[in-house]
Design a protein around this nucleic acid. Structure first.
Lengths: 153, 153
DNA sequence: CAAAAATTCATGCGTTTGCATCTACCTCAA
DNA sequence: TTGAGGTAGATGCAAACGCATGAATTTTTG
């Protein structure tokens, strides 16, 4: 029997949700979120991927949090000396964020352990071919493959 | 060039996280979460898939929430008449949950709109073959087929 | 060029979450 | 049977969240 295209799409999305939930729970249960919580790590990791200081709003596009929640999460990270906040010279409303040295160290330390854990879980179930395929499909699903109209200058 | 297996695994996981975040944001922005929030819907949906009354703990395994948070979320749904809570005759500690008629109606109404939205987003980017492949890989990633496995150091 | 509209981030406030802990019940061994 | 140990769910409480809104700045428009 053949599932309809809509049904296929919903089943695929649900399987992604389940995989996300299962692995997130497993990762959350690990004993490595002492220095920073998982969400805080998410922000540190995102910042670590940007060489230049990043706008708060830009950060918000990559993090699953409301704008006020992100604003205050960043504020806490600044208070703890993990993130540096500065005014954007090009836009008086904007705020530029960057990792401090401490923040970078914490990100690397936690990231190392977390990354090992991720690799363990993923490799336990998927072949390398699967991983490549999953990455390709997810990138496309997120609209992040080459064919995206981006404001380049 | 060849990425290491650990690198492949982390890249795959990150792409899944990004896809999850991007689509979740899109879905959250839709105007259909008036009757129930997205998390509440998640619970209603999970219950709708179980024909028999379901234990709270069982529900918790499928929902990305702490046990107390889920306990109270369910409590609110009970108060609003969407979920029925009863003692488990087989285990005095347990709590059995089930959708009420109202709850079932709400789940179907919201689910219809949400499902259409999901289908729209997924179909816009993926072929049916992709959807099947994604589902298969995610099921495996979640350890939801055949071989169950325990993880330790 | 001034006023209106839009944008960026912060803040007030009520709600929800997670952690630690508690209670009630089940299981099992002696 | 009984008491130790384990499990299911509820509750107190501080932290964190989302919504609505505010303040400051930029952009647009007439």
């Amino acid at each position: 029997m053949t599932r309809s295209s809509g049904r296929l799409a919903n089943d695929a999305w649900e399987s992604l949700l389940v995989a996300h939930a299962v692995l997130m729970k497993r990762f959350a249960a690990e004993d490595i979120w002492v220095e920073v919580s998982m969400r805080e790590y998410d922000v540190l990791y995102t910042l670590s991927k940007c060489d230049e200081p990043t706008r708060l709003g830009e950060l918000g596009r990559n993090v699953l949090l409301s704008q006020p929640a992100l604003s205050r999460l960043v504020e806490r990270l600044v208070e703890r000396g993990l993130v540096a906040r500065s005014a954007d010279p090009a836009d008086g409303r904007g705020v530029l964020l960057d990792l401090t040295e401490t923040g970078r160290h914490v990100q690397r330390r936690v990231g190392g352990r977390h990354g090992a854990s991720v690799a363990r879980s993923v490799r336990a179930e998927l072949t390398e071919e699967d991983m490549l395929k999953l990455e390709e499909i997810c990138r496309r699903l997120a609209g992040q493959d080459g064919s995206e109209r981006e404001n380049e200058e």
